[in-house]
Amino acid sequence: MEGEIMSETTVISEQSILVDVKDTYHVITLNRPDKLNSFNDEMHRALYAALEAADADVNCRAILLTAAGKGFCAGQDLGDRVKPTPGSPPPDLTQTIGDFYNPLIRKLKSINMPIVCAVNGVAAGAGANIAMACDIVIASEKAKFIQAFAKIGLVPDSGGTYFLPRLVGSARARGLAMLGTPITAAQAEEWGMIWKCSSAETFLDEATAMVQELSVGPTIGLGLIKQALNASEGNTLDEQLDLERDYQGEAGRTPDYLEGVTAFMEKRAPKYSGKR
């Protein structure tokens, strides 16, 4: 049932994706550690279903995306594809992108609540770009980010050519995309690719604490912030000013705005409902 709270971890689609439903947020875990959590079709479907379930849960106000094992995600499971051979027709990679990766990135960007990504290890190819599609990324100091596409003659997908220049600038984006040079989590933080690099022992606790905080925050306002930032990447200044005006009006009509101001005046911690 919509909004129902489950007391135990829910396993979706033969454990390629694990979902742990908390009172106010969902934890979604990529769970193919023996394959460095690389994607096959089944895992794509399971992750998309998990995101849709979180989006539909009226009690869910934030999402934590993480992964099992030593790596976060190695991108596409190349063993799941028919290998090209000399003289055979080339594979149609547009189908995988159109059917799976593009809808996944659009879903991550459109879900109207904060999504925190906890990167535990290597994030390569689409795995790196899926992380960048989330709202806030906290990475273990052991993590690395690799635009591995050029190493096998491909082009960055899953939004890589969109996110990289906006996060790290054109020169660095071109170097990362064309050379496929791995960068550490510390360097990714320095370049503005991620929010924070933390110790391997604490990064997941930090990410969980952040999601817990966000999940009891002013949910409508946080969703409007996400929408505004997403829109700013294509808007002119005038368009963005008008959007801010409209979103501020919407946020100002929520019970959470009244609660936030009242709590401030009464010098107490606010108790946000996340409701309209």
Score class of each variant (00 low, 15 high):
4 E>S: 14
7 S>F: 11
10 T>W: 13
14 E>M: 01
20 D>Q: 09
26 H>F: 13
29 T>I: 07
32 R>K: 11
33 P>E: 07
34 D>P: 10
41 D>I: 07
42 E>R: 08
43 M>H: 01
44 H>N: 07
46 A>K: 05
51 L>S: 05
51 L>H: 03
51 L>F: 04
52 E>G: 07
58 V>I: 11
59 N>P: 04
61 R>Q: 11
66 T>M: 06
71 G>Y: 10
72 F>C: 02
74 A>Q: 02
78 L>I: 14
80 D>N: 12
82 V>S: 12
83 K>L: 15
85 T>E: 14
86 P>S: 08
96 T>E: 07
97 I>R: 04
97 I>T: 08
101 Y>A: 13
104 L>N: 03
108 L>V: 14
117 C>A: 07
118 A>K: 01
121 G>F: 02
123 A>Q: 00
124 A>R: 01
124 A>W: 01
126 A>W: 00
126 A>F: 03
130 I>Q: 04
134 C>W: 12
141 E>T: 00
143 A>T: 00
147 Q>T: 09
148 A>Q: 01
150 A>R: 04
154 L>F: 10
157 D>I: 01
165 P>A: 11
167 L>W: 15
170 S>H: 10
172 R>T: 15
173 A>S: 14
176 L>P: 00
182 P>N: 06
183 I>E: 02
193 M>T: 11
194 I>F: 12
194 I>K: 08
194 I>W: 05
194 I>L: 07
197 C>H: 00
200 A>K: 04
201 E>F: 02
201 E>V: 06
204 L>D: 07
205 D>A: 12
205 D>Q: 14
214 L>C: 05
217 G>N: 15
230 N>A: 15
230 N>K: 13
234 G>C: 11
234 G>M: 11
236 T>D: 11
237 L>P: 06
237 L>R: 13
238 D>S: 03
239 E>I: 06
245 R>G: 09
248 Q>N: 03
249 G>Q: 02
250 E>P: 03
251 A>S: 12
252 G>M: 03
258 L>D: 14
259 E>T: 15
262 T>V: 06
263 A>P: 03
266 E>D: 10
268 R>H: 10
268 R>I: 06
269 A>L: 15
